[in-house]
């Protein structure tokens, strides 16, 4: 205590702040449920190559009858070319999670940069950036993503880019608003009066206050990015070389699975999307509740 001095105390207090956050998060039932589902889905998606044989995905190497209802050997039936729906759904999770998180990360980076720049430098920079943000906020993001993925070459990278560059405006608005709020706080004024410059104010006060909320929003962005990915794949704009839930639903529609009443082909991919999106949404909302002091009722 005496030799290490107070800095040792300060370091010791950090993990306890994290633990406190986790304790608050644990009280959010929906968030814990969502997190459990996510851990399970991610583990399953990662273990797909270990537990299953990707040969079953090759249309040329299957011998089953097409559109067979669930039964022994194929718990979830088969698709229009005789592949196991269970296997397809299992592998489909990989693309959804990959595209969802990459697109959300891209959107977070763009949004945070635009938001912090606009709020911190103000003036003309702010006017122009805000105007641009509002323009993209109003613009139907999916229509723009459709346009982008139509004209660019097909692939996972295109999808990530198309979703990432169309979903940042919300984050930018949030970050800008938060930065502006933090900058009006008397402690920022105090830091400036003490002689602190831009670097000090941004690094020690603004970013630490803004980033947790950005993290919560990004979790919510993953949810909408997964929906967007499945929609693009459903419209036939996905990566043709990879199985994804949206693409499965597209084949189901195109090959008459709906009119044939092949519910076993229709249910699993859609349910997969809904469950993963719901899990991300629940986690994001709980994080928001835990991290946003205003929602927690600690504000003025």
């Amino acid at each position: 205590m005496t030799t290490g001095g107070p800095s040792a105390d300060v370091r010791a207090r950090r993990p306890s702040a994290l633990a406190e956050g986790w304790r608050a998060y644990r009280n959010e039932r929906g968030g814990v449920f969502g997190l459990a589902v996510l851990v399970l889905v991610v583990l399953l998606a990662l273990s797909a190559p270990l537990l299953t044989d990707p040969a079953g995905l090759d249309v040329t190497r299957v011998e089953e009858a097409p559109l067979r209802p669930p039964g022994a050997g194929h718990w979830l039936g088969t698709d229009e070319s005789g592949r196991s729906v269970l296997l397809l759904t299992w592998w489909g999770a990989r693309v959804s999670l990959l595209v969802g998180s990459c697109a959300a990360a891209l959107s977070m980076v763009i949004g945070t940069l635009v938001g912090v720049t606009a709020a911190h430098f103000g003036g003309w920079t702010d006017t122009v950036l805000l105007r641009l943000t509002d323009f993209f906020l109003v613009l139907p993001a999916l229509v723009l993503a459709i346009a982008l993925s139509t004209v660019l070459s097909r692939g996972v990278f295109t999808i990530v880019l198309a979703i990432g560059v169309t979903s940042w405006p919300q984050t930018a608005r949030l970050v800008r608003a938060q930065t502006l709020t933090v900058q009006t706080r008397p402690y920022v004024e105090r830091a400036r009066a003490l002689g602190g410059g831009h670097r000090h104010v941004l690094g020690r006060h603004v970013l630490p206050a803004v980033l947790p909320l950005v993290f919560a929003t990004t979790t919510l962005t993953v949810a909408s990015a997964i929906i967007a990915e499945s929609t693009l794949s459903f419209l036939g704009l996905g990566d043709p070389s990879r199985i994804s839930w949206g693409a499965m639903l597209k084949s189901a529609m195109d090959t008459g699975a709906v009119t044939a009443g092949a519910w076993w082909y229709l249910f699993p991919p859609g349910l997969g999307i809904a469950v993963v999106v719901l899990a991300f949404t629940l986690c994001g909302r709980s994080l928001e509740t835990v991290l946003n002091p205003r929602l927690r009722g600690e504000g003025r």
Partner: peptide, 17 residues
């Protein structure tokens, strides 16, 4: 929240079926 998490086209396909 559940309805919000469901892809629109999937719900459409289900209702259609």
């Amino acid at each position: 929240l559940t309805l919000w998490s469901v892809p629109t086209f999937w719900l459409g396909l289900l209702l259609l079926m």
